[in-house]
C-alpha cells in the first residue's frame, strides 16, 4: 500500500503513514490485516500545554474585567464606563489571544473577524454616546481598512514571492485611506474639505510606487540593498 499523500510505500502493518500521519487508504485495494510490530500505545492522550496556557490567559482577562466592573458599579450602582473596558479587552483578546488556540491561524479568517468585532465596538460607543457617526463615518472607514489589511495579510500568508509588490500595493491603498477619511469627516461632522489628505496621499502613493519599481527592477533593488543593508 502507498500513502495517498506523500507516496511512500508502506508495510501492511501500518494504519497511519509514519511520515505524514495520513490514514492509510485505498478505494479499491483492501489492506491486509497484519498484526502490528509493537503492542498498541496505551498512553493517555497528551495534554496540550498550549491549551492550558491559553486557558490561563483567558482566565487572567477576567481579573481586570471584574475589578473594572466593581469599580464602575461602586459609586452609583450603575454601569458608566465598564462597556469601554470590556469592549477593549475583548478586542485585544480577539487580536492576540484567539489565534493562539490554533496551530496555524489563518489571517484570511482572523483579520476580518477582528474588524467585525471592532465595528461592533464602534457601534456600541456610537450608541452609548448618541454620536450618530457610525453609519456615515466609522463603518465605511473600518470596512476600507479591513479590506486592505485582510488582503495584505492573506497575500503575505499564501504567496511566497512578490512581497515588494504586495507591500507597494498596500502602501498605495493606504494612501487612498486619507482622502476617504477627510471626505467622511466633512460629510459627517460638517467640516470644510480643505484637501489636507492630498499630502499623505501623494507621499504614500510615491512610496508605494517606489516599492513596486524596486520590485520590478532588479538592478535598482540591488543598488538600494547595497547602500542600505545592515
Amino acid at each position: 500500500m502507498y500513502c495517498v499523500k506523500c507516496g511512500v510505500k508502506l508495510e501492511d502493518t501500518e494504519k497511519i503513514c509514519p511520515l505524514c500521519e495520513t490514514e492509510v487508504y485505498h478505494p479499491i485495494v483492501k489492506q491486509e490485516q497484519v498484526p502490528p510490530n509493537y503492542p498498541p500505545d496505551k498512553r493517555p492522550p497528551a495534554k496540550k500545554k498550549t491549551k492550558i496556557i491559553n486557558g490561563v490567559v483567558l482566565f487572567l482577562i477576567f481579573i481586570p474585567l471584574l475589578t473594572s466592573l466593581i469599580s464602575d458599579l461602586q459609586p452609583d450602582g450603575a454601569i458608566n464606563w465598564f462597556g469601554y473596558v470590556a469592549g477593549a479587552l475583548t478586542l485585544a483578546y480577539i487580536a492576540f489571544g484567539l489565534p493562539m488556540w490554533f496551530k496555524r491561524p489563518n489571517p484570511a479568517i482572523f483579520v476580518p473577524c477582528f474588524f467585525a468585532a471592532t465595528v461592533a465596538y464602534l457601534k456600541y460607543i456610537d450608541f452609548v454616546t448618541d454620536g450618530d457617526w457610525f453609519l456615515s463615518f466609522a463603518f465605511p472607514a473600518a470596512m476600507y481598512f479591513c479590506l486592505i489589511i485582510s488582503t495584505l495579510a492573506t497575500l503575505l500568508f499564501y504567496l511566497k514571492r512578490g512581497k515588494l509588490y504586495i507591500w507597494g500595493g498596500f502602501v498605495i491603498a493606504l494612501g487612498f485611506f486619507f482622502p476617504l477619511i477627510e471626505l467622511l469627516l466633512s460629510l459627517t461632522f460638517d467640516l470644510r474639505f480643505i484637501g489636507w489628505s492630498a499630502y499623505p496621499f501623494v507621499v504614500f502613493g510615491l512610496l508605494g510606487g517606489v516599492l513596486i519599481y524596486l520590485a520590478a527592477n532588479r538592478f535598482a533593488r540591488d543598488a538600494v540593498q547595497r547602500r542600505l543593508f545592515f
Binding site: 501500518e14 503513514c17 500505545d41
Partner: peptide, 10 residues
C-alpha cells in the same frame, strides 16, 4: 531507490 516504511505506531 524504492523503500518500504514501517513504524511502531498503530
Amino acid at each position: 531507490l524504492e523503500v518500504t516504511v514501517e513504524s511502531n505506531r498503530n
